[in-house]
Design a protein around this nucleic acid. Sequence first.
DNA 1: AGTATCGTCGTTTTT
DNA 2: CGACGATACT
Length: 753
Amino acid sequence: MSYLEELNEVQRKAVTHTEGPVMVLAGAGSGKTRVLTYRIAYLLESGVDPYNILALTFTNKAAREMKARISKIAGEDMAKSLWMGTFHSVFARILRFEADKLGFPSNFTIYDSDDSKSLLRTLIKEQNLDDKVYKVNQVQNRISSAKNSLISAEQYQNDTFIYNEDLQAKKPMLGKLYGMYVKRCFKSGAMDFDDLLYLTNILLRDQAEVLLKYQDKFRYIMVDEFQDTNYAQSNILKMLAARHENICVVGDDAQSIYAFRGANIQNILNFKNQYPDVAIYKLEQNYRSTKNIVQAANQVISKNKEQLKKDVWTSNADGEQIKLVKCLSETEEGSFVAGEILDLKAKESINEDQFAILYRTNAQSRALEEALRKRNIPYRIFGGTSFYQRKEIKDILAYFRMAINPNDEEAFKRVINYPARGIGQTSVDRILIAASEEGKSQWEIVSDLEAAHLNINTGIRNRIKEFVDLIKSFQILASQDDAYEVGNHIASATGILKLFYSDKSPESVSRYENIQELLAGMKEFSEIPLEPDENPEENPRGLGSFIQDIALLTDTDVKDQKEDDQPKVALMTVHSAKGLEFPYVFIAGLEENLFPSQLSVNSRKDLEEERRLFYVALTRAEKRAYLSFATTRFRYGSMVYSEPSRFLSEIDQSLIEMPKRMSGEQRTTSSSYKLSRQAIPRKLVKPTASGNGVSGAAMDQIKIGTRVNHARFGRGEVVGLEGELPNRKATVDFKGIGKKQLLLKFAQLQIME
DNA sequence: AGTATCGTCGTTTTT
DNA sequence: CGACGATACT
């Protein structure tokens, strides 16, 4: 086991201490991933069956990378059989096995957060609630945190404390919404992200034999980024580990940055209360950064009250001072960053992939991107709208979902009249009402039209039947063929492909390309050779497996098909930079109310999380860190003045250097900047309807040759008439505009004397 | 029925 | 400012 020699003493102890509860407190850059990897390899070499090891990571990417490294040490076969993945993906897998015990189909859909929102929007409307009071995002948050705290809808509704909270917030119906939301998801055979954790808890809590089975299976449990687990997650761990207690959690309380998502820093702070005989190893030697960076980061984090004591140090060189840059605007900030990158590339031949630009909010990326683009610096943005969230992709995925689970209400909503097949809003609403009255899903209503009490005419009835037949044909294909064949068929049979192919507008071209990219991904998926443990009967390369596979992917996991090998500057939020490292790091927008965020400055707890976030940002840097702030910045469309972030003053001045500003040293003394240049709201000049429109009675007075006036097109002469009243259409030749066809009942034409 | 325009809202952060 | 949902229009 030669790799043990690559470890320092504490690392080696953490790796070889395999029995009983272990907590590894790993400072930034202290070789945490290496410890986890080697620990798993060590277990395997000690004869532990890979099937008995569960390793949970925070991102799919981390899981993939770790698997790759274990393959190298312990062999591919071993690595393949490990249960390794994110909480969500591992427990989704288990839930599929055990779905029937919860009354769910094993091919349940996973609602992403847009699907949940859409369902909530529907429910709010159905209940005739004011959507200004019941804001979808807030409702979703409330339900999400209830689930993360393992509070069921019934408990929620019966809890007077919660009810009073909601009452005070003037939202007494939240409990009811929660209950309805759960019911509708159930009826749709759908789980949202939180359900994957919540329902796993329910499953393990209520089904003793299931719990026993997985307790026995997962004899060794390892958890990465433990500081970011929430109650639902830590409770799963507690239950699973209760039998063997071979649980090893790795984390850094100083890097806990997901409290907003329910992550509870107390999980790590209290781990030793839960397991009194826990062995704690502190990895304090940083191998990543220079002394200056480590020291600056330590100074920052020391301002936090809530933390476990740790002493991060490094034997690396002192390195350079941290560069602090003041800019006048976000544009100038972008110019500085881009200019600096060009400079370093030219003078020290540093490649683009050595740089990362980090920011607090995604909205900041725009100005930075523009600056890079202007100078032709290749870059790649992580985050933002993911490939799978694009409309054209979600639409076609909705057909895939219908083929696998037609009860999926959100998918149904998307495809019932897309592409347009003449089933209008009114008919869709009637189907929805019928479904809710009869306690069925919308699919159950339309697939048995004869039985349903639907007030719709035969024309629409037939179109619905065609739709049902179409979906049924997809279902049959999906059960037999591989994902690529079915996907290809659906793309053409629905007419979606043609829709974008025939239109040559740039958006359509790009949508067409995106669909082709999706199909290429499906092809790749379908061609993966079968594993010995996969049952061909279950069509493991079919559409169902495909959509299950991609449901939990984020954009950082998606391989960009257009990716070339050209090195690129990385742009991302600090959150998505967690776990990564770069030689040169720019942290942009270090301003009060931005970093720390405006929403966090009023509470010590939130502020401490912002500080940890800054700590994470700073500790990504290996060689050099740039901190920049702008004195003015556009926000909500108007310019605001900003103060430098308080975090900047938490670093000792001796570690900081303010380099001379690059280009044109504009003086900031000009008092003209004091004048607030508030954006003046555009005055809207409403074209007032002049005179009365032509009423029903007057419509028949319009003849060919009648001279008329139109509010927008001005004066013209009627040159043609067709159709019967009240739906008569007139062709009017407008002066200087040309002929227009207008429906008389809408056009509000004024007859000229 | 489908499109253009209007109006509102928001910004953390993501599995 | 920009995205997106609601509405107004044809």
